[in-house]
């Protein structure tokens, strides 16, 4: 039972981690919460459905193309909803703009794709059993894809010139500009990378639960956001860890305590951890020297 719940928890945790990264990276460079992130994910997942149903694309090609669309949508959200806000009470204006964008995307999805839940294309399920633990090929694929995405992200953020520029922007946009960095381009790219991973995560979860619907982003987004907060928002390794911790606790909670509260465990874990470590697992430690 324990190992079984652990396996299930790691699977959903991987998805939470991929979504959490989008919140954390945007927060890292702009110190804003992109509340439209999960709706961008939902929209991208519907595009995946469209690609399959209308264009009969194979699953993997569809996933990459849908994620690319999600990335483009995420970048557009930044240009339309956040970039124009430069002065005044910026945080409040950004919050309102983000919530507006989120509502807009949900309504647009209902209008275009309908409001009911639709079955999502999946692959033939193969089940493996080792001892008392059962897992499926879909779970293995989700974990494999997550590992690949995390590796690529690691190479971009920590090993490439663009990644150094991103981290410089997260410290100070004006000082990054003084290095010759086109900060608007880096911000765009950050939204794009975050949304691409969310697109992949959306396809994964829709395949896993075999469903896509206009409000699918809501709980997923809240849990992923909790994961980002738990890990210390702005910290990339923190968000990954936060995603897995939330996935695992949710699964164990549903298995051992009560599955009726499945959706509450993420937030319970977050509150407990923040009570002990207010900055999360890996929250920003400020090193200031004058």
């Amino acid at each position: 039972m324990f190992l079984q719940q652990l396996v299930n928890g790691i699977t959903v945790g991987a998805i939470y981690a991929m979504v959490a990264l989008g919140y954390t990276m945007v927060y890292g460079v702009l110190q804003i919460v992109n509340w439209a992130h999960a709706d961008v994910l939902m929209f991208g997942t519907f595009i995946g459905l469209l690609l399959t149903n209308v264009f009969h694309m194979p699953l993997f090609a569809m996933a990459v193309l849908a994620a690319a669309f999600t990335a483009a949508l995420g970048m557009s959200v930044e240009i339309v909803a956040y970039r124009p806000i430069k002065s005044g009470n910026r945080r409040m204006a950004v919050l309102v703009s983000a919530l507006g964008m989120s509502t807009f995307l949900q309504n647009l999805a209902q209008l275009v794709f309908g409001s009911s839940s639709q079955p999502f294309p999946t692959i033939e399920k193969v089940t493996y059993t080792i001892g008392k633990v059962t897992f499926t090929n879909i779970q293995l694929i989700i974990l494999g894809i997550t590992a690949i995405m995390l590796f690529i992200l690691y190479m971009i953020v920590y090993k490439s010139k663009i990644g150094i520029a991103m981290r410089a922007c997260s410290v100070s946009i004006p000082n990054a500009k003084l290095m010759g960095i086109n900060t608007n381009f880096i911000i765009s790219l950050t939204f794009g990378i975050g949304a691409f991973m969310a697109g992949i995560a959306g396809i994964c979860i829709a395949t896993y639960y075999n469903a896509v619907y206009p409000t699918m982003g809501y709980l997923l987004g809240m849990k992923a956001f909790a994961a980002a907060i738990l890990g210390g928002i702005g910290s990339i390794p923190g968000s990954v860890l936060g995603g897995f911790v939330i996935g695992i606790f949710e699964s164990l909670g549903a298995g051992y305590l009560s599955s009726g509260y499945r959706d509450a465990y993420a937030f319970i874990v977050m509150i407990l951890v923040l009570a002990i470590r207010p900055s999360g697992f890996m929250g920003a430690k400020h090193i200031d020297k004058v």
Partner: peptide
Amino acid sequence: GIFPILTVAENINLGAY
């Protein structure tokens, strides 16, 4: 205005961005 989270070498490289 150095970047405290980046190494000295990375800071230097950014100068030649």
